[in-house]
Simulated scan of single mutants.
Amino acid sequence: MSKSKRPRTALVTGASSGIGEAIAREYAKRGIGLVLVARRRERLEALASELGEHVRVAIIAEDLADAGAPGRIVEQLERDGLQVDILVNNAGYGVPGRFLSSDWKTHADFLQVMVGAVAELTHRLLPGMEARGHGGVLNVASVAGLVPGSAGHTMYGAVKSWMIRFSESLSLECAPRGVHVTALCPGFTYSEFHDVTGTRAQVSRMSPRMWLQADDVARAGIDALEAGEPMCIPGWRYRLIRQVAKHLPDGVARRIIGRRSKDFRDDS
């Protein structure tokens, strides 16, 4: 995206905390208007009050586990005359434990947030970007989508792998039309994520060197999108892990992940 076509407004899902909040803050620093989307209205209002001193900020309180939420979000944008130039699909979480330790409704809600809402919001907002000849989609995936699957949090790596492949394909389709698409693939990042999934005690035993700061991840992802890079892996350690995983025999990589998965996954 050239500076002459600098986007005016970014819509960020899951903007009330963690990487989503950090991305919103970074865009505000860069003078980009914001549409903040999350379930927790009070948090959105507090963040909007703070960032609204610098850029125009709108909030939309919606739960993306509701299949009707993407449509209502786009309808709200149209009613308010808001044009989205950057879509940040960040909302997400993990379902701890074995696949069969949770009921299907739990898994269905997870898939709606992590796959259904991502695909639908992208499908609804991309046409406007392509028509204007500029824009961007930043999909917050994970390095978990680039390494073999682990026991526990059974679908997390799978949906992140889908998000990466989805982003790669969209990048090829949209680049000729002036729209950049990037998959942001962070590793362990300081946020509320592990508190929500109940794995804080496990991951706290990991080396501090493996942890990333949310604001660093946000800057790296936004810079990669601006540069038209289809994938961004913040942190040299995680780029190294990805390269090692690519070159190890599949069976060896799976055994290593299998042995280490209890360090960061609840498989009970």
Rank of each mutant, 00 (worst) to 15 (best):
M1C: 12
M1I: 10
S2F: 08
A10W: 01
L11W: 09
V12N: 03
S16A: 14
G20Y: 09
E26M: 05
R30C: 05
V35C: 05
V35W: 00
A38G: 07
R40A: 11
E42R: 13
E42Q: 13
R43T: 04
A46H: 04
A46E: 14
S49C: 10
E50T: 14
E50P: 14
E53V: 12
H54P: 10
D63R: 05
A65S: 15
A65H: 11
Q76R: 15
L77V: 04
G81D: 11
L82C: 05
L82N: 03
D85N: 11
I86Q: 06
I86K: 04
V88H: 03
A91I: 07
G92A: 04
G92I: 03
Y93R: 09
G97I: 04
L100W: 01
S102Q: 14
D103E: 13
K105T: 15
K105S: 15
T106N: 06
A108C: 07
A108P: 02
L111F: 10
L111T: 10
A117M: 05
H123L: 12
H123R: 13
R124I: 03
P127S: 13
E130G: 09
A131P: 03
R132P: 01
R132E: 11
G135S: 08
V137Q: 09
N139F: 03
A141I: 10
V143K: 00
A144N: 06
P148W: 00
G152F: 00
M155D: 02
G157N: 06
M163K: 11
M163P: 00
I164T: 10
F166W: 12
F166E: 04
S167P: 00
S167H: 04
E168G: 13
L172M: 14
C174P: 00
A175F: 10
A175W: 09
V179I: 07
H180Q: 11
A183T: 14
T189Q: 07
Y190E: 13
F193I: 10
F193P: 02
F193Y: 03
G198T: 01
T199G: 02
R200F: 00
R205S: 08
P208A: 09
R219H: 10
G221Y: 02
A227T: 02
E229F: 05
M231Q: 14
M231R: 12
R237T: 13
Y238D: 04
L240E: 09
D250M: 14
G258K: 03
R259Q: 04
F264P: 10
